[in-house]
């Protein structure tokens, strides 16, 4: 009996690795009253940027989406862009033509030449969109949740399609924290009522084995949803979900940020539902290659006013 621990441990590990975490069923509906089609004007001007509050300037006013792009918005885009021939539908997903980036042969540099790049994968259990009868539709209940499983190319294509682009890191940070260098969009402190982060106790927290899920955009609007009391957690310009929920892709390439010389890695901001609260600080950064996607990656767009 004493020698039984090894096989027991092995079995336990095998079970742990073997047991799949079931994808969430239709989530409870929450109407937050926040319109994801709204845009907000962000004024040009000086602001404090990055962890060390460096002085920076945004030269021109711009507009930013009030919330991250939702599943419903992204499904509409896929259908419209496919119909116009701007996307390519393959068996494993939807692709877009990208002109490519210069390859400099740097250490660990991966080549992103001209070609087709993934915009949305098909057949994954994490996806909230499915392709049915020649149309992309949102699985019931996920319409007003932020779209995930998006690559950088998804944001690049989506924003361009509607006359905008992804925000640069500086634009995003100005929009998120205003001019006074605050760490969170709403101020100095974060609580579970402010944002969707790991184990923050929201009604979607139990999904994926307790890893959490997205909350509908604008969920943290000061109201009580499904018995969960929220704070009105908006940025100084009124933007929702600038902390937590999904990582948001930034436009920045070497062209915008010399520090990204030959890496092709992209910056993501805001933190996601499965990250600790410190990742939701406005200056916190994540990186990923532009073709990376998982159930935490989303985006929002900016445009000229």
């Amino acid at each position: 009996m004493k020698k039984a621990w090894l096989p027991v441990l092995t079995l336990l590990l095998a079970i742990l690795w073997g047991c799949a975490v079931a994808p969430p069923e239709s989530p409870p509906q929450v109407d937050t009253g926040v319109d994801p089609n709204e845009w907000v004007r962000i004024p040009a001007g000086e602001f404090l940027y990055g962890m060390h509050n460096k002085e920076a300037v945004i030269e021109k006013d711009f507009e930013m989406m009030l919330t991250p792009v939702t599943n419903a918005q992204f499904a509409a885009y896929l259908n419209e862009a496919l119909a116009k021939g701007e996307l390519i539908l393959n068996e494993d997903g939807v692709y877009i033509e990208y002109p490519g980036e210069p390859f400099e042969g740097g250490k660990h540099e991966v080549e992103y030449g001209p070609g087709q790049y993934l915009v949305y994968p098909l057949g994954t259990i994490e996806a909230k969109l499915e392709y049915k009868s020649g149309q992309f539709v949102v699985k019931p209940g996920w319409e007003n949740h932020p779209v995930t499983m998006t690559t950088w190319f998804s944001g690049w294509g989506y924003c361009r399609f509607y006359g905008g682009r992804l925000p640069t890191e500086k634009e995003w940070e100005k929009a998120a924290r205003g001019e006074d260098g605050r760490p969170y969009p709403w101020g100095e402190e974060i609580t579970k009522a402010h944002a969707n982060f790991y184990k923050s106790g929201d009604p979607f927290d139990h999904y994926w084995g307790g890893q959490g899920e997205t909350t509908p955009v604008g969920f943290y609007n000061g109201e009580t949803h499904l018995g969960f009391k929220t704070e009105k957690a908006v940025s100084p310009y009124g933007l929702y979900d600038m902390a937590g929920n999904v990582w948001e892709w930034m436009l920045d390439t070497e062209e915008h940020n010399p520090h990204l010389h030959y890496t092709h890695q992209r910056i993501l901001k805001g933190g996601a539902f499965n990250n600790y609260d410190y990742d939701a600080r406005t200056f916190a950064r994540n990186f990923a290659p532009p073709d990376y996607y998982d159930f935490t990656t989303g985006f929002r767009c900016v445009r000229e006013p």
Partner: peptide, 14 residues
């Protein structure tokens, strides 16, 4: 090496 992001929670908990 063993699990994808969405499937990791049992391993993370353990």
């Amino acid at each position: 090496l063993y699990v994808s992001v969405s499937q990791q929670q049992p391993l993370v908990n353990f």
